[in-house]
Amino acid sequence: MTLYDGKAGISYQVEGVFVEEAVSRRLQALGINDGTRVRILNRKKKGAMIIQVRGTRLALGRHISSCIEVKEEAERGEETAV
């Protein structure tokens, strides 16, 4: 699945970033890499979303979020707290 298919309030783990070179470099600089944990905080039905990654909030457009391959993070006790 891609991040774009994700639901608000759920944590995911990045499995790959398949977007234009320039954008993927920016994402990498922001710490979005293979294996990074991201959490969707808020999203619009067909559009942008707000994610939390490495302690900061980012707004991502639909194009970028649908180019990030993720898998749902296995529940871990301490991180389920909202």
Partner: peptide, 11 residues
């Protein structure tokens, strides 16, 4: 092509 590349930090 469209460039819908919103990427911005929210403080």
């Amino acid at each position: 092509a469209v460039s819908d590349c919103l990427l911005i930090e929210l403080p």
